[in-house]
Amino acid sequence: MIAPKSAEILLVEDDPQDVELTLRALKKAKLFNPIHVARDGEEALDYLFCEGAHSERRASDEPSLVLLDLKLPKVDGLSVRRRIKGDGRTREIPVVVLTSSGEQSDVVSSYSLGVNSYIVKPVNFERFYEAVREIGLYWLLLNQPPKPGP
């Protein structure tokens, strides 16, 4: 299962342990895509829109998948989601919310913002790994965004 080289994943996560565990789960699922980690909502937006520290980045190299935590410093996950969906450059990028929160209000507001998937991070690592593996498979391999014709 080798994803296209360009299929980059943006992981937006502030908790270093969760970053490490997510990377481990992705690796274990044999998803060897390049991964960029943003540690808060502001950094994620800078990266996506090539601003601030990421003004050098080329906008054509948009990530193929955003794994987004909801509870983030500075700009929270739902605001990041709103910006992604509200901008023509990023609207097509699938966003998967990965969060500890199973609270109903989060679920509802996420779906009302057109979140593509919603995964409550389980305490049990095996189940977390399963969830990450399925998400990766679905959004990176099976659900290829439409490409310009040959």
Binding site: D15, Q17, D18, L21, L70, K71, T99, S100, S101, G102, E103, K121, P122, V123, F125, F128
Partner: peptide, 11 residues
Amino acid sequence: VSHDLRAPLRA
């Protein structure tokens, strides 16, 4: 509680 107490457990 649901966010912050679960994260260390997950780790």
